[in-house]
Design a protein around this nucleic acid. Structure first.
Length: 585
RNA sequence: GCGGCCAUAGCUCAACUGGAUAGAGCGCCAGACUACGAAUCUGGAGGUUUGGGGUUCGACUCCCUAUGGCCGCACCA
């Protein structure tokens, strides 16, 4: 039997194919097959309701005609019923579930099943993108964690992904920083902890500029000098950037993030003139109060709120570099899609940017890639305000990760006394980091999220530890029985799935495809997280209900097959989210 | 002032972008280890989806409105 990876898409296509035979106008009919509440079956088609409504027809009649026209390939695999006002419900038969599980038996096979959705496409994903000369703090975490998960999802769907760290290394802040560097540098501190020193200088420059307009003016001039190639300022700038990037790399290594390119704002410095020229030529840019700006007359707000692409003093800003960046991603990477992962406060900026890019590219007949601003909410403390240390300071990311590991270690020590100390340390590193990542990924990215250690590493509920534990338990079964996950000789001996818990688990497993599709289409990894949590729950139920280590070899074999596939999908899914997994904990 | 986002169980969050009786976890109550790992599982209680209108076969979801919160708005990113 030839089984589709995505059963819902397969059913959708089947319904569409028989629509003409059932007397429907195929052009106006979308089957709308989606996963269903388990009470109703595995999949449901809702499309006849809308179709019938638009034509004032009886939806149940239409549903009946469609079902009658379905080919044997569908009716052999599903129990099909019509319910309510005209829902068509599909319940997969055990034979179909078994075929799917036998077909998608390795990560490579899962990948080839999923990898058709975006094959041949190139996506540039712009994430992390911190400003240099500052330490990474907790606010930088979401972009990294969500961005990496999105990269992996896109790759799994067959896209070529370019991970681009679009660092902020060319902004106004550098004017103040260079101003302070020239006057207040402490060489001893520069040698011992450069980032602390840059941060001190930056803060110093910032407050000096705020207090004294003359300093502000001098800072601006430092920036203009830098941007026009002044050798001294460039040398200082380079020193700052090199030291900062080195420090960032330690965090990236820890999170398992590897950028393909690090093209910060400074990379585009010699491309901004083309942006000024083209946008002026096509009539989008205009002078206003000394600056070069873009208005969007059709937009309620942006008709008066300018998109400033060159400042009054002649310096570029992030609008300029972002415009140049969009062009570069099209021309150099041939991007079909561009994803920028930043917090929601930049929503206005990206709306203006994309409006401008669309008009600009249309005027010049450039191909327009799909432009996505993936935004996310604020990380808050339990008081609902932005997360801070107890004394009101900013939480440094390296401290936060260290605390996660320490808390995880305390827990491993408490729960797993029989594991050697060095392995406990390694386990704690995985659990600690995964908990922090998963807390972010399990939640809809657009809402703010409350950072609470206890909920994050508490091991109960929708947490990384719960998922890792499910995996560790499966590994433990195979260890105990001396079996290997996915072993072909074992699996050929498997008898048909039978018990309610076996079937429920199998039903959940085949829906991996739907979770992947949903998470990728919406660029929202939490749909995958939620699925994995439900899968782990389904496995725990199965584990409690049906013993794997039974004497009957055929029963044992089919349960081992279920264990192996659960493990495969669980680990594949967690890896797609950017988490590492464990064999015991 | 203009605009954006948000408001779901006591708490933290889901609800597949308009589908069927709004679901989980924590907490609470009651159970399950001579069981392949109890970091687990099985039940139970808990809701006028912030209030009020509207759109339609159907609304947490779309529109209007009120309230409350977060955020952005001329040279920071």
């Amino acid at each position: 039997m030839n089984v589709a990876f995505n059963l819902a898409a397969d059913l959708d296509a089947a319904l569409l194919a028989v629509a003409p035979a059932a007397g429907l106008e195929a052009s106006g009919f979308a089957p709308e097959v989606r996963t269903a509440d388990a009470r109703h079956g595995d999949y449901q088609a809702n499309g006849v309701l809308g179709y019938a409504k638009a034509r004032k027809l009886n939806p149940r009649d239409i549903a009946e005609k469609l079902v009658a026209a379905l080919p044997a390939s569908v009716t052999d695999s599903y129990n099909v019923t019509i319910a309510g006002p005209g829902f068509i419900n599909f319940t997969a038969k055990p034979s179909l579930l078994a075929s799917w599980l036998r077909t998608f038996d390795t990560t490579a096979h899962l990948r080839s099943g999923a990898g058709t959705a975006k094959s041949g496409q190139t996506w540039v994903v712009d994430y992390s993108s911190p400003n240099t000369a500052k330490q990474m703090h907790v606010g930088h975490l979401r972009s990294m964690v969500i961005g990496e998960a999105i990269c992996r999802l896109l790759e799994f769907n067959g896209a070529k992904v370019v991970r681009d760290n679009h660092i902020g290394d060319w902004g106004t802040g550098f004017g103040m920083l260079i101003w302070a560097y020239k006057r207040h540098l402490d060489p001893a501190k520069l040698a011992t902890d450069p980032l602390e020193e840059f941060e001190r200088l930056y803060t110093l420059g910032q407050s000096a500029a705020k207090a004294d307009p003359a300093v502000l003016d001098e800072s601006r001039q430092e920036l203009v000098k830098l941007q026009s190639g002044d050798a001294d300022n460039l040398a200082i700038w380079k020193k700052i950037n090199d030291a900062t990037l080195e420090a960032f790399q330690q965090i990236y290594d820890r999170l398992g993030i590897k950028f393909d390119v690090t093209l910060g704002e400074s990379f585009y410095r010699d491309q901004v003139d083309r942006v000024y020229r083209e946008l002026t030529e096509v009539g989008l840019a205009q002078e206003s109060q000394g600056a070069l700006v873009v208005f969007h007359p059709e937009h309620p707000r942006f008709k008066t709120q300018p998109f400033i692409m060159r400042k009054g003093d002649g310096a570029s800003n992030y609008a300029t570099t972002d415009l140049a960046t969009a062009l570069y991603r099209l021309e150099h990477f041939h991007a079909d899609g561009i994803v920028v992962v930043t917090d929601f406060r930049q929503a206005d900026h990206f709306e203006q940017l994309y409006l401008t890019v669309r008009k600009w590219f249309a005027e010049r007949h450039y191909r327009l890639p799909e432009l996505q601003h993936v935004m996310f909410g604020t990380v808050t403390g339990e008081d609902g305000k932005a997360l801070r240390t107890r004394d009101g300071g900013i939480i440094k990311l390296k401290d936060l990760l260290a605390e996660a590991e320490a808390r995880a270690l305390a827990l491993v020590n408490e729960r797993s006394s029989d594991i050697p100390a060095e392995e406990k340390q390694a386990i704690a590193a995985v659990v600690g980091l995964a908990s922090v990542q998963y807390a972010d990924l399990s939640q809809n990215r657009s809402s703010d999220y409350v950072f609470a250690w206890d909920k994050m590493i508490s091991l109960e509920g929708n947490t990384a530890a719960y998922l890792l534990y499910a995996g560790a338990r499966i590994h433990s079964i195979f260890r105990k029985l001396g079996a290997t996950p996915g072993d072909a000789a074992t699996e050929t001996a498997a008898s048909p799935l039978e018990t309610p818990a076996e079937l429920a688990l199998a039903r959940k497993l085949v829906k991996f495809a739907d979770a992947i599709r949903l998470a990728t289409d919406t660029l929202r990894p939490h749909f995958l997280s939620l699925y994995l949590y439900e899968l782990a729950g389904e496995f725990s139920g199965f584990y409690a209900a049906d013993k794997v280590a039974v004497d009957d070899p055929a029963v044992r074999a089919r349960r081992l097959l279920l264990c192996a596939r659960t493990l495969l999908i669980l680990e594949t899914g967690l890896n797609l989210l950017g988490l590492r997994t464990l064999t015991r904990m």
